[in-house]
Design a protein around this nucleic acid. Structure first.
Length: 284
DNA sequence: AGCACCACCTGTGGGC
DNA sequence: TGCCCACAGGTGGTGC
């Protein structure tokens, strides 16, 4: 479910609500949801901690506490739901209940059970244990110049695989990657080496624009995604290619679906022309 | 280095 | 109507 805009939507809802609250004892309905430390130490360690700030890096939600850090990753179907009353109407996939001392609560739900929560001592431990292979955040930590320079280290990579690589930069997922490549008319299998410097900058601009629009629309609720207040996102109505197999592109062509980098990939075969393998390297 | 494939899970939708 | 299989927004590990 969640890519950068969905996690950012959750962050923006929680940031005005959580700081100042103190966690009571959490209930682990599914202990394997805890990535670190042990479920017992997680429950004991979270209890009594106050929330200071709600941050994000890529698809990770980071909650700064007065004596540590809690990190949440929703993976495919996770939902982090806040309730002022502390009640939850649909608890079918409830994995962790995190009540606050004031009666409100945070619930972690996850149908497919891929999502994880971690409790870390400090930034150093978080970076070592959780964010080991996570690059800079696409929306807040990379300039146009940084991006173009980093592309120069990945000349042999295909664009779709590279944008999905969280170690290169963090936050892009399957939906926003396809939408981004459509917007700058690039085939998903295009090699970085075939892009001129100007096109590399355009790719950066398209990434920023697609992420910005996704955030403005409260994320994409293609299936299971809900914000922290339980609201649906709205960006699914703005998708140009993702999930639109056999529909018409605005150019008159037809949107097709293939597999690239192991993921279902949508693109317009007409305006996202296939780049020639072994084409000249325009940058060097 | 890049890539294909599997694993982790449960639910849904399309084809027959 | 019902069954079966493919597939789903992510990531980590393996092996070529």
């Amino acid at each position: 479910m969640p890519e950068l805009p969905e996690v950012e939507t959750i962050r923006r809802e929680l940031e005005p609500l959580l700081p100042g609250k103190t966690f009571a004892r959490p209930v682990l309905h599914m202990p394997t949801t805890i990535g670190h430390p042990s479920p017992e130490l997680f429950a004991a360690g979270l209890e009594g901690q106050g929330v200071e700030k709600v941050r994000r890096r890529g698809k990770y939600l980071i909650i700064n506490l007065n004596r540590g850090i809690m990190v949440v990753h929703l993976r495919m179907t996770g939902n982090l739901i806040y309730s002022a009353s502390g009640s939850l109407d649909d608890d079918r996939f409830l994995r962790v209940t995190m009540p606050f001392c004031d009666g409100s609560a945070l619930f972690f739900l996850d149908m497919r059970r891929f999502g994880r929560l971690w409790l870390l001592r400090d930034e150093e431990e978080m970076n070592r244990i959780v964010l080991r292979n996570v690059g800079p955040d696409y929306y807040t930590e990379i300039s146009r110049g940084d991006f173009v320079e980093k592309l120069g280290q990945k000349e042999r990579s295909r664009l779709k695989a590279l944008l999905l690589d969280q170690g290169f930069a963090a936050g892009m997922g399957n939906i926003y990657t396809d939408e981004c490549l459509f917007r700058c008319s690039l085939h998903p299998e295009t090699r970085v080496s075939t892009l001129c410097r100007e096109k590399r900058g355009e790719l950066y601009d398209a990434i920023q624009e697609v992420l910005k629009q996704g955030i403005e629309h409260g994320g994409t609720s293609f299936r299971d995604y809900r914000s922290a207040s339980g609201a649906l996102g709205d960006f699914q109505s703005r998708l140009k290619v993702y999930g639109r197999k056999d529909e018409n592109c605005r150019c008159g062509g037809t949107i097709c679906k293939t597999t690239v980098a192991g993921r279902g990939t949508y693109y317009c075969s007409c305006c996202q022309a296939v780049s020639e393998e072994g084409e000249e390297d325009e940058v060097k």
